[in-house]
Amino acid sequence: MSDNILDVIDVSKIYGPVKALQNVSLSVRPGEWLAIMGPSGSGKTTLMNIVGCLDSPSLGRVILDGLGLDQLTAGELTAIRREAIGLIFQQFHLIGYLNALENVMVAQYYHSLVDEAEALEALAKVGLADRAKHLPRQLSGGEQQRVCVARALINHPKLLLADEPTGNLDETNEGLVMDILHGLHRQGGTIIVVTHSPEVAQHAERVVVLEHGRVASDSRGADFSDPSGASQTA
């Protein structure tokens, strides 16, 4: 079939009267860096959840890495999340009784082997080397968010789904996270970032704008890794 890593085909998600997504179609090529923008309630998180195998569409199909998600069992979907996807949640979500390092190691544990050194290194990359032994409640919002980034990337996912990964970060830390995403991008990882920030969107090669659950625009720039390039605003 297609050699896309992701095909969203005519997907709708309906919550009673609310149509969170309406006939959304979207194809993503391997290694592509995509930004999704749009006003609050436009269905960005809903789309991410469906692509991330956490939710299923009311109508339409999603084909991820050649697999039709509607054909898979819950166990197989879990396996895909574990093996191929890195998730950064809008509201970060860490396990409260585990420290930063352990929270990263949990992702390793469910994925394959636990490697403490590697987990520490991932924390260091997001500037949290000295916060490894802190519990989530001892970390600021931005620090927690960076732990989530480290956790999402620890297993080198094929597809990174990041929902507002820099929403709580200052410029310095935003830069740190963006560097990490660039690193993943260079290694061939596919990235989908939901963001309200034009600066963050600038890093992407392509910007999809959602409005009222529909794709309002889908623009492909040349190379957005250069901040001086063309930019979109939501």
Binding site: T78, R81, I95, H111
Partner: peptide, 16 residues
């Protein structure tokens, strides 16, 4: 439930 949902999202199997 949040913790359990998170574990699932991270790829933990029901068995784990």
């Amino acid at each position: 439930s949040v913790e359990i949902g998170l574990m699932k999202a991270l790829g933990a199997s029901g068995l784990a």
